[in-house]
């Protein structure tokens, strides 16, 4: 019996070595592995064997059976992959199907970036109306009536007492009137300036202002917060400086400059934001005791920041919404 198996194996090896296509392989499969094939015949023969020889022969038969089916599978896979690559030609150089993801306006993207940084520093985000009262935009912010400080911000008036906000500071007034300290928030939004449209100025732009009022707020902390912002936004190695300035709603007031080094051109200091300690008059106007609470505030223009970052030199292109511009960001 073992000899029979051995010769069947030899025959099989001989047969299979001659197989060249799926058809002859199938013929061979029927010859050996079908219900009445050689393997099945051997299994039948095994049943007739004496009990004591069965294990040994059974093992050999099993090995033979496994060997044949492995060989078949191997060849079948080989033929299949062969036939596939022959059947279908895949042109891998065909262009891709077109999918588009849109994008937020570059100003929104820049705003988001600024917002993210300050949210990480524990700031909330508040919004407010663009058409404001003179009180919220100027008076409550310590702009005396008929004072040259008002000339700093050319204003679109709707009536004597209503105007297009010139900064997002009125949101600070609204917030401080509604809620009590501690308050830590930024106010992003659109603001208006009554200026002729040119490459450098537009009648509206976006601003992010920040406010922090608590019992132990200091100028040193204001500086720390803004430096933390500048490092994240402009890069860890940003060079910066603080200059004294004037805003009616802060005292002391400061401006922050960063060193701007365009490639291949002369570097220069660029003003990136205004800031200061909230003027006690402003706190009084919203019913917060300036002896007990101290605040700081800051504000920056988003367009200016975005233009710097992306080397855009004409502000008008931001509001042209040319698709060729929009799809760049």
């Amino acid at each position: 019996m073992l000899k029979k198996i051995e010769s069947a194996r030899k025959n099989f090896e001989d047969d299979i070595s001659k197989v060249t296509n799926p058809t002859t392989l199938e013929e061979l499969r029927i010859k050996y592995l079908s219900r009445k094939g050689i393997v099945a015949q051997l299994v039948e023969a095994l049943k007739e064997m004496p009990k004591e020889e069965k294990p040994k022969v059974g093992q050999a038969l099993n090995q033979f059976k496994n060997f044949t089916s492995e060989k078949f599978d191997e060849l079948r896979t080989k033929f299949e992959s062969h036939s596939k690559s022959k059947r279908e030609f895949i042109d891998l150089t065909l262009p891709d199907r077109q999918y588009t993801i849109g994008s937020k306006h570059i100003i929104t993207q820049t705003l988001d970036e600024i917002k993210e940084i300050f949210k990480g520093l524990g700031f909330s985000v508040y919004e407010g109306p663009e058409l404001e009262s003179d009180y919220n935009n100027f008076e409550a912010l310590n702009f005396p009536d008929d004072h040259p400080a008002r000339d700093m911000q050319d204003t679109f008036f709707v009536t004597k007492n209503f105007l297009m906000r010139t900064h997002t500071s009125p949101v600070q007034i609204r917030l401080m009137t509604e809620k009590k300290p501690p308050l830590r928030a930024i106010m992003p939004g659109k603001v208006f300036r009554n200026e002729a449209i040119s490459a450098k100025s537009y009648c509206l732009f976006h601003q992010v202002e920040g406010l922090y009022v608590d019992t132990d707020v200091t100028f040193a902390e204001l500086k720390g917060t803004l430096v933390a912002f500048a490092k994240q936004f402009y890069g860890q190695d940003v060079q910066y400086r603080f200059r004294a300035s004037f805003f009616p709603f802060t005292e002391p007031s400061a401006e922050m400059d960063v060193w701007w080094q365009p490639k291949g051109k002369d570097g220069r200091w660029l003003e990136v934001l205004g800031c200061g300690m909230v003027d006690p008059n402003v706190l009084l106007n919203v019913g917060i005791d300036p002896e007990k609470f101290v605040g700081y505030a800051f504000g920056m223009g988003v367009e200016r920041t975005a233009m710097l970052k992306y080397a855009i030199n004409d502000i008008r292109i931001l509001f042209d919404n040319d698709k060729r511009f929009l799809t760049q960001f």
């Binding site: 849109g102 994008s103 306006h105 009648c203 509206l204 509001f319």
Partner: peptide
Amino acid sequence: FEILTNSL
């Protein structure tokens, strides 16, 4: 794509 237009 987002656009931003003049409010005036």
